[in-house]
Design a protein around this nucleic acid. Structure first.
Length: 820
RNA sequence: GCCGAAGUGGCGGAAUGGCAGACGCGGCGGUCUCAAAAACCGUUGAGGGGAAACCCUCGUGCGGGUUCGACCCCCGCCUUCGGCACCA
């Protein structure tokens, strides 16, 4: 057996054998094995698998394979995130139907995924755009309607003028559309929302999850809990619609006596009610201007604050003081009550605004050593209360609670908690998504589509050009329907669902992918959920990963799953960059096509190289020259496995023991590294073992190798490389005469007796500097090691005439002689 | 501005209180070849000393500190990358 290592020949052959023997089909239960659910994020059907997909999936596959060899019944499924606007946009550009475009991409990408040689269980494959899947996405929507978690409301929504649809808050980044980077504007529209805020407090508590800390922090910041008080100020004169108060949220009830004006968001409902006749023209012009501004313009902290006086006043009940009401676009209608009390002395924004418009600034918390002079900047730190009636003299920290209690007693306000998180806006005015299963009836109002009438099929034959209205609205056949309740003519909802709805539960469906009578059975849920190990990019921290957590809690409350969290462990890999260290993109011309790498080097080499690049969580540039190192290594593996040394029968020789010790140390190291997601050092350790085997083989003419130890070493090497390089491992395993398959073998266990070294080389330090080395028995005492060290001529010389003040001996590691 | 992560040879990185630079790329020298490429072998942090085996000094973003001993822990900065950003 001296033939060359031909990766592609081996890989295609074994991939075919694995598929034909059903090696990766995972039953729901296997006697004597615990289930382990490993999942990597399913790809969007963009048309081509890129290096980033491989960078997430190949190491995830290695981890799944390792769990499988460690005795688990491992589910590692794959599917496609097949709904979404890019399909529609690409289809429009290319003149193709989104469905045909998507299906063609799925075919192509499935083939690319299969070239990876991953242990995906294709029998559970799903894609979000199939009626068998979105039927249940619609079903979930109905559960949320039932639970009061889905509602329709008119609200200011993020509108992307390019995508011609609204977007969820999470899908706006720096005021731009997450997908196309167009500046988002606010539009007031009737939309469907999911009540994510109902779970805000529960979602906030993610501390116990085995997730990267920075992702958990991002989620907590996104949810943004603030404790404070809601305070009602009395309007001086009631409005035409009968409003008598304006309510504000503040985290600083201690500054309530310093309120000198009030600010409403331009979109606040009271603005048009309370504006006086003299101010109406100015206010309406201001509100109009604000409505055309993009989020980036409005939310720039650099921009000078602007505002307009409404002419109206309210009363601070605490002081009886008359407070002018302004409108300003730095106040957001979507946070708190959409109105703020302005305390310029103790808030930087209010201070700037007061200065610009010459509004009074009144100190109610004394800065340290304050002499009563006007402030030249807002004082925002704690201090002692002044000009605050009965609260004078308290610390501001104490006054927060005291004033809130007082407000409560007087029924002027109460303590409250406000979240930054908003309800999830899920309706989209686009074609390529799951239709929202609701019907509008003149007589009955909003009627859910009965569950037995699902799915509401997305019609194929539709003009899908975006117009700002759902293309489904122009399909008479789709829109016209009889009311399920009264039978009268009615109209279907024509908006479709945000694709994040589809991706919020796909991991549940894998557990029971072909169930035609339920989203998933309770047995399947019990068998597989929650996901034991999830992997994917942290760019989803406040989108997919947050939505999925919400969805799972909803599924729990709907009685479908038990448990509170969908992903027990989650690991966020870094991002793979182009060779130039920048994001890969076609326009930069720095894209590495995985297919070409596989073609040139083989899948095993490419997989191992992606793991070897560096720490997985870090990512980094793809160095096209570096991969040759992995290729050389696998050729060396091939060489040691197929070209044996000169053998001897010497089970007890020092060389045999040394070889076996290295093998077992490598087992321990590789196992530990996999447990800590350190695939880069795992590959290094495997290289070291290979190099040692090669050296032993090359020297075996003079120093023959014990046959049994050699066989143990080669078998172990095949088992240890199986997770990273499944094809060459399988080939070598078969060539060694073992039974199919290496991937069904037990993971090797390191023998502790062999891990112990008999003797160790200890560095001898004098005053912290290494001066010599000495070979000592592993269990030597400090005194013994010191005696051996001091006997060394060089050490003796350094110690001559000096006194050893202290001896530090770290067993097996180092000796340090500290001189006086 | 706030929150988080990270700064180590020419490059990717290793070592989480104990021999800094494992493993790999690249470079240099060699084998093979008419030659080149590939492959394989050797060598490779910087500076200095020695004919040589070797020896000495410096060295993990910067400045301090703790310790017998610090890439690692503590304090103060600088830089880079991510996230959030008028959230009342």
């Amino acid at each position: 057996m001296t033939d060359r290592y031909e990766p592609r020949e081996i890989e295609l052959r074994w991939q075919a054998r694995w598929a034909e023997s059903g090696l990766y089909q995972t039953p729901d239960q296997v006697p004597g094995r615990e289930n382990w659910y490993a999942l990597t994020m399913f790809p969007y059907t963009s048309g081509d698998l890129h290096v980033g997909h491989w960078f997430t999936m190949a190491p995830s596959d290695a981890l799944a394979r390792w769990r499988r060899m460690s005795g688990y019944n491992v589910l590692f499924p794959m599917g496609f995130d097949a709904f979404g606007m890019p399909a529609e946009n690409a289809a429009i550009k290319g003149g193709m139907h989104p469905q045909d475009w998507t299906n063609a991409n799925i075919e192509r990408m499935r083939g690319q995924l299969q070239s990876m040689g991953a242990m995906f269980d294709w029998s559970r494959e799903l894609y979000a755009s199939s009626p068998e899947y979105y039927r249940w996405t619609q079903w979930w929507f109905l559960q949320m309607v039932r639970l009061g978690l889905a509602y329709r409301a008119k609200a200011a929504a993020n509108w992307c003028p390019s995508c011609q649809t609204v977007l969820a808050n999470e899908q706006v980044s720096d005021g731009n559309c997450e997908r196309c980077d167009t500046a988002v504007v606010q539009r007031s529209m009737e939309q469907w929302f999911l009540r994510t805020t109902q779970y805000a407090e529960e979602l906030l508590h993610n501390e116990h999850l085995d997730w990267p800390e920075h992702v958990k922090v991002m989620q907590r910041n996104w949810i943004g809990r603030s404790e404070g008080a809601e305070v009602a100020f009395a309007l001086e004169s009631p409005t035409a619609d009968g409003s008598t108060e304006v309510r504000v949220f503040t985290t600083r009830p201690d500054t309530l006596h310093g309120v000198t004006f009030m600010v409403l968001a331009p979109e606040h409902a009271l603005v048009s009610q309370l504006v006086t006749a003299e101010q109406r023209v100015a206010v309406e012009a201001y509100v109009e201007t604000a409505s055309y501004e993009t989020d980036i313009e409005r939310q720039s902290t650099e921009r000078e604050k602007t505002g307009v006086f409404t002419g109206a006043y309210c009363v601070n009940r605490l002081t009886g003081r008359r407070v002018p009401i302004w409108v300003a676009d730095y106040v957001l209608v979507t946070y708190g009550t959409g109105a703020v009390m302005a305390v310029p002395a103790h808030d930087e924004r209010d201070f700037a605004f007061a200065q610009k418009y010459a509004l009074p600034i009144e100190v109610v918390i004394a800065p340290p050593d304050w002499d009563g002079a006007p402030l030249d900047a807002a004082y925002t730190a704690p201090g002692n209360m002044v000009h605050s009636q009965q609260f004078d003299g308290m610390t501001s920290t104490d006054a927060k609670g005291a004033i809130t209690r007082y407000l409560d007693e007087q029924s002027w306000g109460h303590a409250t908690i406000v979240y930054r998180l908003r309800d999830w806006l899920v309706s989209r005015q686009r074609y390529w998504g799951a239709p929202i299963p609701m019907i509008y009836c003149e007589a009955c109002g909003l009627v859910p589509v009965p569950e037995d009438q699902l799915p509401v099929l997305l019609p194929y034959d539709v003009e899908f050009l975006p117009t700002g209205e759902s293309p489904l609205a122009r399909s008479e056949a789709f829109v016209n329907v009889d009311c399920p309740r009264c039978g009268a003519a009615a109209r279907r909802e024509t908006d479709t669902m945000d694709t994040f709805m589809c991706s919020s539960w796909y991991f549940m469906r894998y557990a029971d992918a072909h169930n035609a009578s339920a989203a998933l059975s309770s047995e399947a849920a019990r068998a597989w959920l929650p996901v034991d190990q999830y992997t994917g990019g942290a760019e989803h921290a406040t989108m997919h990963l947050l939505y999925a957590r919400f969805f799972y809690k909803m599924a729990r409350d709907a009685g479908v799953v038990s448990g509170d969290e969908p992903f027990t462990r989650y690991f966020a890999q870094g991002q793979i960059l182009g060779p130039d260290g920048r994001r890969m993109s076609k326009s930069r011309g720095n894209v590495i096509a995985p297919d070409s790498q596989v073609e040139r080097w083989g899948a095993d080499t490419f997989r191992a190289y992606l793991m070897f690049l560096g720490p997985w969580e870090q990512g980094g540039p793809y160095d096209v020259d570096g991969i040759v190192g992995i290729s050389r290594w696998l050729h060396r593996v091939w060489s040691v496995a197929t070209d044996p040394p000169t053998f001897a029968d010497a089970p007890d020789s020092p060389e045999t023991r040394e070889l076996r010790a290295l093998v077992h140390r490598t087992i321990a190291k590789v196992t530990d590294d996999l447990g800590r997601y350190r695939m880069n050092t795992m590959v290094s350790a495997l290289m070291e073992l290979t190099n040692a085997l090669q050296r032993a083989r090359d020297e075996s003419a003079h120093q023959p190798v014990d046959r049994a130890a050699w066989v143990e070493a080669l078998d172990t090497l095949a088992l240890l490389i199986a997770p990273a390089c499944p094809h060459i491992a399988e080939e070598l395993w078969a060539r060694a005469g073992h039974e199919y398959s290496v991937h069904q073998q037990s993971w090797p266990i390191a023998d502790p007796a062999l891990l112990r070294r008999l003797s160790v080389e200890i560095p001898v330090q004098v005053d912290g500097r290494v001066r010599e080395r000495v070979e000592v028995p592993a269990e030597a005492t400090a005194a013994e090691v010191r005696a051996l060290a001091e006997a060394l001529p060089k050490v003796a010389e350094l110690l001559a005439g000096r006194e050893v003040a202290r001896v530090v001996y770290v067993p097996g590691r180092l000796l340090n002689l500290v001189l006086r």
